[in-house]
Design a protein around this nucleic acid. Structure first.
Length: 223
DNA sequence: GGCCAGGACACCA
DNA sequence: TGGTGTCATGGC
């Protein structure tokens, strides 16, 4: 696949689905909490948890730090995996206070690679969550790939289904201009398309990419 | 009632 | 490094 093909896919998706304006959050800290809570969870369930944290006025570093883990569990219950996720929230703010005195800007304003490395060192933050934070909270161009990305583009026959995270990430970064807006929108569009194309929920018809891909997009009804 | 959701980690070979 | 089990709620 050539770079211009990938850009064309992006433009087609943009035209069909419209701008997504990700990430849906009021603050950078909210982006981070959302990125952790949405791990293997439906965003709808995450929204409930976010609202609970807002209602308690603890959707900030000090708030999470000063709230007991058992209380956090109750508030984020809707997002699932509340034992693990409550610990992940704690691990993040503990890291933030230990290394940056609780100053989120100090963490986020670092060079991209250092920031990503910092994030990956925190228990509970893997590559996708780290990239989401770098891209949508720190506003630095780090392409986010997820299960949808792998599923859709392997169906198109562009990448191998067994490709690992870093390779898939590089595939996009090597074939796209290093543009913050494109990175943000493209990932969001892929997720929105992925939702519509979930195996159990066929929607609409015709491949949005104009390709005759290996996977049967016609049956699946992409758009 | 079963499947899946905007993953990451532990453990194993 | 690759493959599998685990975590858990809520919508469809």
């Amino acid at each position: 696949m050539k770079s211009r093909d990938l850009i064309e896919i992006y433009e087609r998706l943009l035209k069909h689905l419209g701008k997504q304006y990700w990430w849906p959050a009021e603050t950078e800290f909210e982006v981070i909490i959302g990125a952790i809570l949405t791990q293997a969870a439906a965003w709808k369930n995450v929204e409930i948890a976010i609202e609970n944290l807002k209602a308690e006025k603890i959707l900030n570093p000090a708030g999470i730090k000063n709230t007991r883990q058992n209380q956090l569990k109750k508030l984020i219950k809707s997002a699932g995996y509340y034992n693990a996720k409550s610990r992940k929230l704690k691990e993040f703010v503990n890291f933030l206070y230990k290394n940056y005195g609780g100053d989120l800007n100090l963490l986020l304003n670092q060079p991209k690679n250092k920031l990503r490395k910092d994030l990956l060192s925190i228990w509970g933050i893997g590559p996708e969550t780290a990239d989401s934070i770098v891209l949508y909270a720190a506003h630095k161009p780090s392409f986010v790939v997820d299960a949808y990305t792998k599923r859709i583009f392997s169906r198109l026959g562009v990448i191998d289904n067994g490709i690992d995270y870093e390779s898939l990430k590089k595939f996009f970064e090597n074939n796209l201009p290093e543009n913050l807006g494109i990175y943000k929108e493209f990932h969001a569009l892929i997720v929105e398309l992925g939702k519509k194309n979930c195996r159990t929920k066929p929607v609409c018809g015709g491949c949005p990419f104009g390709y005759s891909c290996r996977f049967n997009f016609k049956d699946e009804r992409a758009l």
